[in-house]
């Protein structure tokens, strides 16, 4: 299962980098979305994949049973998703404004600041 996840993450990273290297700013934002998802999946996978064992304490002994999922990694991902959501909302607004101001969606036309 982890091997499959690793491949999937690799594909996500590759796809996001490919999208970011395209000239259109819309594709750039799509690349950023894929990138943040790929990073979240890295945390999820590297903390260990467990299925069917929610991190709940035993009713009687008040201790966690052996082999439950690690709740901390999931808390980290939850935080990261929220942050990524905010940042991506900003970047969507940014490309909209940039398109209005610069009148193009071609990144090659946006190099006034590099001269």
């Amino acid at each position: 299962m982890s091997a499959l996840m690793a491949v999937a993450i690799g594909i996500l990273f590759a796809a996001s980098l490919y999208m970011m290297l395209r000239r259109s700013i819309v594709k750039l934002v799509m690349g950023l979305i894929l990138l943040s998802n790929a990073a979240n999946l890295v945390i999820f996978t590297s903390a260990g994949l467990t299925s069917g064992a929610p991190p709940l304490l035993d009713k009687v002994t008040k201790e966690a049973p052996v082999g439950v999922a690690d709740p901390l990694a999931q808390a980290l991902i939850l935080t990261a998703i929220v942050i990524a959501f905010g940042v991506l909302a900003f970047s969507v607004v940014l490309i909209h404004r940039a398109h209005e101001v610069v009148q193009t969606d071609d990144l090659d036309q946006m190099k006034d600041t590099d001269q």
Partner: peptide, 9 residues
């Protein structure tokens, strides 16, 4: 973030 994930793992 990915580095954090790998380190935690």
């Amino acid at each position: 973030l990915s580095a954090i994930g790998l380190l935690y793992g």
